[in-house]
Design a protein around this nucleic acid. Structure first.
Lengths: 332, 332
DNA sequence: CGGCACAATGCTCAGATTGAGCATAAGTGA
DNA sequence: TCACTTATGCTCAATCTGAGCATTGTGCCG
């Protein structure tokens, strides 16, 4: 068969080899300076329940992938979505769980940012601090305690490799992702860190355990999620952490008016690091990302803060910048 | 049905509503300072042939999406792939061409970067300068001629809108993407520009015409491609232009040793802009992206240039930087 | 009412990074 | 040898960054 014919048969070929396609949503909000993801309860009484992300199959009624996703999310969580972007398509046969008899099982994942947290709606949908699932990613209070134990186990895992080349490779990855062996922590490598932990056997999902974790596990390797949803969440966080640096997406998470410090707290919540306050506001001011309102906060202690709003016009302006994050070196 | 049950039926639901899934590859190389994409001939004598991207259906034999892609590409083009990353999943029902009777038609697109251009292999696979398909994206010789006519037509399209709000919206988009109405050109917005042209009716594929373009059309709106492959190509270019700024991916396109100027030419080819020579080499040197070899070029005119090689170690180092592109203001 | 604690906001300053250009070096071909 | 071409070295002003000190409004507490 020639190449041309082959490609011509593309559609027919695909028709005779169809696949199951699912849609998954990572829906993010930030309230009270905490980053949250919308979760639902997955599983049955018998098999055990676990946290999962809103998801559903793609059905022919959906005109587009994104519309299908919105439909599922609204049905399962009563949450309407604003900003939505495609995240990644997970399609490996080796995903644990559902190997559907020769069929591929694809999941097209989306990232959504929403403003308000309406806990109303189904009781089964609830907002959870995302660091519950990935506790080692939160450096706002300094280096997370749990990283000590994680590192010990990871180093042991690297040692396990008998082939020196493989061992070297593992150590390199540890340095690259967890900052071990002289590397630095890069807050964007969320997925790579998760996958390393997964390979090292520190993630219960690898053995098909997605339910409630023990107290100690929860503090160290975090709460498991259904299927590979924790991987999807990690992908979303990494993407978002990268994106806030060059696109003004944080504002999708903010209320109509807010203070610069609330904005900073939100950025810090997402990136998992602390920022230098004065420099942060200088940056925001210079970039012209916000405009002042006539209002100020009141009631709280300390000098009232000016309320500002996002300048929608910047979406039409030149480089449409985000935040370059310079962590404030925290005094030990 | 409760949410939990709904999610539980996810897999079964998907099974009864399967979709056709295809794989598409944008394979990029850069030789002689030109960016090229690997294309194949699609279509039949009867229906007319056109350029397309290597593609094929996902079949159960493929263990993962990426492996399936590699298999198709090697079969169709005899090209082995090195660096591969997932690009985007195109799934809109409104893709022209194949509305497969109630089935969705998904395409999972990948971006691949390869080093050598072996034209050997199938005659039907050939390397094409990517600006053949998107001529307005090449600003290396200054502002492309064809942009004059394109702008005229785009402005006319914006004018067409009777609803003032819609008109305003269209003008905003023109400013944002094509730098009209006071905006600036952002070389990363390749896809947005293509989609704008598509909506404005300047892209023949919108009417299902993918064959050979007339001489004049070719110079202005570029050579069409099969199906929505030009959209996929635009997505790939935009992604790559963004990525070279913060990851050292250009080196995937370079031979084992090369001169700094060759490297610059490659970056310029990808980004479609010119760079300031001295500053470019300062940047590369500072970032420690390359190390010198003992060899120099010979034979060409001018002072011989030192040959350098990529420092693989940087992949393990801290921010693993790319190039921040500062276009050289070209003298009028 | 005066002073205090607290958060917001203003301002400074040295060091690093950029954008742009001039100057020099080292080959080729005539 | 000269003319020409490209590579490479170096300078300099403008700007950007990281870090910290200083000042300004508020609520609260004697």
């Amino acid at each position: 068969m020639t190449t041309a014919e082959e490609i011509q048969r593309h559609a027919e070929g695909a028709l005779s080899n169809p696949s199951a396609v699912g849609l998954v949503a990572v829906i993010i909000a930030a309230t009270d300076g905490e980053p949250r993801a919308l979760t639902v309860q997955v599983g049955s009484q018998a098999k055990g329940r676990s946290d999962g992300l809103p998801a559903g199959p793609l059905v022919p009624e959906h005109p587009t992938l994104e519309r299908g996703l919105r439909a599922w999310v609204e049905r399962q969580t009563h949450q309407r979505l604003g900003y939505v972007e495609q995240l990644y398509t997970f399609g490996d046969r080796d995903r644990q769980g559902d190997d559907a008899g020769g069929l591929h099982s694809l999941s097209v994942a989306y990232l959504a940012l929403v403003r308000e947290v309406r806990t109303g709606g189904l009781a089964e949908a609830s907002w959870r601090n995302w660091y519950r699932y990935l506790p080692w990613e939160d450096w706002r209070e300094g280096r997370p305690e749990s990283l000590g134990e994680i590192e010990t186990k990871l180093l042991a895992w690297a040692e396990q490799a008998t082939d020196p080349k493989l061992r070297r490779r593992r150590e390199d990855r540890l340095g690259l992702t967890f900052g071990l062996c002289g590397g630095a922590w890069n807050e964007e490598r969320v997925l790579e860190r998760y996958e390393l932990l997964f390979e090292a056997g520190l993630i219960p999902e690898a053995q098909g355990q997605c339910g409630e974790a023990s107290e100690s596990d929860l503090a160290i390797t975090g709460q498991p999620m259904a299927l590979d949803h924790r991987r999807v969440l990690a992908t979303a966080i990494g993407r978002l952490r990268g994106k806030i640096k060059y696109r003004p997406v944080v504002f999708e998470l903010m209320p109509p008016t807010f203070t610069l410090f609330q904005l900073q707290r939100t950025v810090e919540a997402l990136s998992g690091t602390n920022l230098h306050k004065q420099n942060f506001r200088r940056l925001v001011a210079q970039q012209g990302l916000v405009e002042e309102t006539d209002d100020v906060t009141s009631g709280a202690t300390g000098r009232p803060a000016r309320l500002v709003r996002f300048r929608r016009e910047v979406l039409l302006e030149r480089p449409a910048p985000g935040f370059r994050l310079r962590p404030a070196r925290r005094p030990a």
